Simulated scan of single mutants.
Amino acid sequence: MDANETAWRYLRTQRESVLWKVEGVAERDLRMPLTATGTNLLGLVKHLAGCEAEYFGACIGRPWPERMAFWADDAEPNDDMWATADESPEQVIDLYRRVIAFADETVAPLDRDAPATVPWWREPDTTVHALLVHMAVETARHLGHIDILREQVDGSRGLRDGVSNLPDVDDQWWADYVERLRDLAGRSG
């Protein structure tokens, strides 16, 4: 696989993992802020949908056709990082799926060296390939947040469906391991 296709392949894998990580989670847990900055599972999915819609929409000259309230000039700060009471988990996850389909439809016929413009970047003139790399990194970053939040919610962990990427040990081993780390941290300066 050439370098141009590698970024897109990694992005697709990260997207699949995002969707897998939020599958089967209760609405309350999807919405629950679990950090001091309010980070929550559903908000991360909504944020990623907005990012892909922008980067693979307007930045390539094919704007996302639906209104996104958090793009409005009068939107509240961080509006894309949480779902309103009127936005169900199914709606947010469906939005992400539709944006992914739109993005893939936009990118597929384009040469990876095709021009793109990101007005908020220091150097706005770029390429489709750079957007793919950027979104693969952005998605992986937020997937890391999703990993940690999901583990806090119900203990679920793993890289993606069918691939844990963790030692094959039982729950007691993990409990002992964490206790050993707590003990070490407690004895440190």
Rank of each mutant, 00 (worst) to 15 (best):
L48W: 06
N78W: 13
M135H: 11
D104K: 01
C51F: 05
A101M: 01
W71H: 05
S188H: 10
R28D: 15
L42E: 08
E151K: 09
R122K: 13
A75T: 06
D111W: 03
L41E: 04
L48M: 15
D183Y: 12
W71F: 12
I100M: 03
K21A: 12
W173L: 09
W173P: 01
H47E: 07
E138N: 06
G155N: 02
V153H: 05
K21D: 00
V99T: 11
A83V: 08
G61N: 01
D79C: 10
L166W: 15
A185D: 11
A3M: 02
P115I: 06
A69G: 02
L30E: 04
D168A: 15
P63K: 06
D74M: 01
D161S: 13
L30C: 10
T139I: 02
W174G: 07
S17D: 10
S164Q: 08
P115S: 15
D183R: 12
N40W: 04
R97Y: 07
I100E: 12
D170V: 10
A36W: 09
E179K: 12
I93Q: 12
V22A: 05
A130Q: 15
A26M: 05
R182Q: 14
D125H: 12
L19K: 05
R122G: 11
A72M: 00
V107A: 14
V45E: 09
C59I: 07
L132S: 10
T37A: 14
P63F: 09
L11F: 10
D113F: 04
P89N: 06
H145S: 08
P89W: 07
W121K: 03
G158T: 04
A185P: 00
T139K: 01
R97S: 07
W121M: 03
A101I: 06
L34R: 15
R31P: 13
L159D: 09
T35Q: 08
A136Y: 00
A185T: 14
D111I: 05
F70E: 14
V118E: 02
H129G: 08
T13H: 09
A7H: 03
C59R: 11
S88M: 02
N40K: 09
W121T: 03
P33T: 01
T37R: 12
G57T: 05
R112D: 11
L149H: 03
V178N: 12
I60K: 06
Y10P: 00
D147H: 12
C51P: 00
E87P: 07
N4L: 04
V45Y: 01
L181R: 14
E151T: 13
W8G: 09
K21L: 02
A75W: 02
A116P: 04
E87M: 03
D74K: 01
G162R: 05
D94H: 03
I146D: 00
S17H: 07
M68T: 06
